[in-house]
Nucleic acid binder design. Sequence first.
DNA 1: CATGAATGAGATTTCATTCAT
DNA 2: TATGAATGAAATCTCATTCAT
Lengths: 201, 201, 201, 201
Amino acid sequence: MATRGRHGERREQLVTAAMAVIAQRGVGALRTREVAAAVGITHASLHYHFPNKIDLIRAVLERALHKQIVLPMVHVDEKLSAAERLRVLLVGLARQMRREPGNVAVLKELHQFADRDDAVRALLEPGIRRWREFLVTLIKQGQAEGDFRPDLDPSATASLLILVTLGTRLGGSLAPDLDSAVLGQIARLLGADTAWNRGET
Amino acid sequence: MATRGRHGERREQLVTAAMAVIAQRGVGALRTREVAAAVGITHASLHYHFPNKIDLIRAVLERALHKQIVLPMVHVDEKLSAAERLRVLLVGLARQMRREPGNVAVLKELHQFADRDDAVRALLEPGIRRWREFLVTLIKQGQAEGDFRPDLDPSATASLLILVTLGTRLGGSLAPDLDSAVLGQIARLLGADTAWNRGET
Amino acid sequence: MATRGRHGERREQLVTAAMAVIAQRGVGALRTREVAAAVGITHASLHYHFPNKIDLIRAVLERALHKQIVLPMVHVDEKLSAAERLRVLLVGLARQMRREPGNVAVLKELHQFADRDDAVRALLEPGIRRWREFLVTLIKQGQAEGDFRPDLDPSATASLLILVTLGTRLGGSLAPDLDSAVLGQIARLLGADTAWNRGET
Amino acid sequence: MATRGRHGERREQLVTAAMAVIAQRGVGALRTREVAAAVGITHASLHYHFPNKIDLIRAVLERALHKQIVLPMVHVDEKLSAAERLRVLLVGLARQMRREPGNVAVLKELHQFADRDDAVRALLEPGIRRWREFLVTLIKQGQAEGDFRPDLDPSATASLLILVTLGTRLGGSLAPDLDSAVLGQIARLLGADTAWNRGET
DNA sequence: CATGAATGAGATTTCATTCAT
DNA sequence: TATGAATGAAATCTCATTCAT
C-alpha cells in the first residue's frame, strides 16, 4: 500500500540488489544501507520506496517465486507425453538450479522465513499447491498413457517428488546433486514395465 | 571437545535453552541475554561458558545432530531384514520429527547456517555422509536378500532417499508429510516383484 | 581528508570535546558516549560522523599537531636573526605549553599511542622530521651569522634540542620547567663568544 | 598493605609478567587474566596476591624505577672525575635503554600514569629529584675540577640534562637516538676550554 | 594458595527508522 | 525523489572483582 512508485524503476533496481545480497549471504545479512548503496542512493531514500525492510524482502520473494516456480511450469512443451514432460521438468529444474544458484538461495532463505512470517508463507504456499496439482495430473496422465506403473498412488508420488525437489532446493551444498543418475533412477522407479523400465535414462 | 567444563551442567542447560529459542524463532533471533536469563544467569556469565555466541550455536548443532541423525541410525534392530530396517528407519525418522519438531527446526536453521559457517558445515557434512553410507549398505543388502529391485543403483537411490529426508526436514510446514501413504509408496517403488511389491505398506 | 562532511561543524565540535577529555584524563579514558553528550547528541549519532573511535582520535591528533607544531614554525618573524628566531621559537613553545596545557597533554597521549598505532605514528613522524629540518637550518644560519659556536654539529645539536622539547612536552608535571633560566643556559651554551654569550636570557 | 605474601615468589613472577605486557603493549592493554595465565594461575588467583589491579601496576613501577634510576646512579666508579662520571652515566643510560627497551617502555607508561595517579606520582618524583641533585653535584664538581665551563648555571644545566633524558626515555621510537654524536655534542657544550672542548667525545 | 562460577557495570558498534529540508 | 543528521533500541563482548569451596 502506497508502496509502488509510478513506474518504479528504482524499485526494481532495489529488488535486484536485495536479491543479490540475499542469494549470497542470506536474509539475515540483508542491510538496507548496502542495498541502497548498490543502486546509488542513501538508505534514507530507500525508505521512500519501501517503508519497511520487510516490504523489500517480500518484493524479492515475489520475484524469486515467479522465476523459479511459475515460469518452469509454463514453459513445458505441451505436445510431449506426460512421462517426458515430467522428465523435462525435472531436468530443467535441476539445470536452472545449477545455472542460477542465486535464485535457489533466495528461495531457500524465504522458505525459512515462511515459517514465521505469515505473509511470506501465504505467498509460498500456493506455489507449492499448484506444483503438487501439476504433478498429480502429470502422473495420472502418464499412467493413462501407459508410461507409469499403474500401481502408483498419484498423490503420494507427487508428495515424494515434491520432497525431492524441496530437498534439492533447500539442502544447498550439502544435498546430493539432482544429476542424471538420480533422475534416471527416478524414471526407472516410476516407469511401467514397458517404457522407462526397459532402459534408457 | 566443546569448550570448557568437567561437569558442564550449566553448559547443557544453556544449550537446551538456546535450542528452544532456535527451534521456535530461528538462529537469527537467538539472543545471548535471553538464553542466559532462561537458565537464571547473566549474559556476562554465559560468556564464561561460551566465549562466543557462535560456540553456543555450534554446541546446539552438535546436540541436534546427535539426536536426529546419530541416534536413529544406532537404534535399529539388527535382526531385521534390510528392507524392514529401512522402513523402520524412515518411519522412526518421520515419527521423531513429528514428536520433536524443535529438533527439526534447529537442524533446518543450522543447515542454513552451514552454507556460510565452515565450522558448522564441517559438523553437518559427516552426518550426511554417514547417512548416505548407511543407506547404500542397506540397499545393497536388501537387494542381496531379494527384497529390493535388482536394477536399483544403490548410490542414486541413496541420493534420492537423502533428498526426501532433507526435503522433509527442511521443507518445514510447507513440505508434504512423510506419512504412511508416502512411505508405502517408497516401499512399493523399491520393492522387488516378490516382497514389498506384493502388498502391505 | 578526514572522514566525511562538507560543513563538518559537528565534526569539529566533537573533536574539540574529545580533545578536552584526552587532555584531562587521557586517551584511555575517552568514551564515545561522553564526547557525544558533550556536544548534545547521542553516541549513536557520533558514529555517523566518525565510524570508529579511532577515527575520532586521529582527528584529534591532526588538530593538536597542527596547533602545536605546524603553527609555531610558521609564525616566526622572518626578519630576525637565526639565533633570535630560535630563542623566540623556544620561548614561544614554552609559553604556549604553559597556556594550553591541554594541547600538550593531548600530544603526550598521542605520542604514547603512536608506538602502537601506525596511522597515528604516520601523522606524528613528519611533524618531528620537519621540526628537525627546521632546527638544522636555523643552526647553520646562526653559525653563518656568527651567533652560534662554529664547532656545533648542526644535526647533533638539533637532536639535542628535539630531545629537550620532547622531554618538556612528555615529561609533564614531572619535567623541569623550560623557564628562562634553562632557556638562557641553552643560549649561552650555543652562543659564540660574541652574541648570546655576552648576556641576557 | 596486606599485599605481600611471605616470600612472594608468585608475586615476583606476576610482576615480571605484567612488566612484559606493559612494555610491549602499554598499561592500557594490561589484563589481569593474561598476566595470571602467563604464570600459570587463574585471574581469580591473581587477586590473592594483588587485591587490585592498580596494586599490581604499582609493583611493576617500583621494580622498573629501581632498575632504571637507582641502579645506574649507584654503580658509577667513584674514582673518576666528575666530567667523566657524567659521561659514563649518560653513555650507560643510553646503552641500557638500547638493551632493555622493555624497561623504558614501562617507565614511559608509568610517567603517563603519574599525571593522574598520585600514588604513582609520589613514587616517580623522588627519583627525578635525586637524579637532579646528583647532576647538580656532578656539575659543580666538574666546574671545580676545571672540566666544565665556569659560567654554567648548575641548576639550569641539570634541568637541561634531565629534559634530554626524559625526551629520550619518553619520546620512544620517535625521539632522536642518544647516540655518540649527541653525547659528544653535549660534552663539547659543557666543557671548559681545556678538557672536553679541545676535542674527543 | 588456588579455582570455578558468577556478576555488575560498562563500552563500542549496528541498524532500521524518522524527519526537516 | 533524495539526502544529511539524528535517534532508540539493542546486541555482543570485556574485564575486574567477589566468593564459596
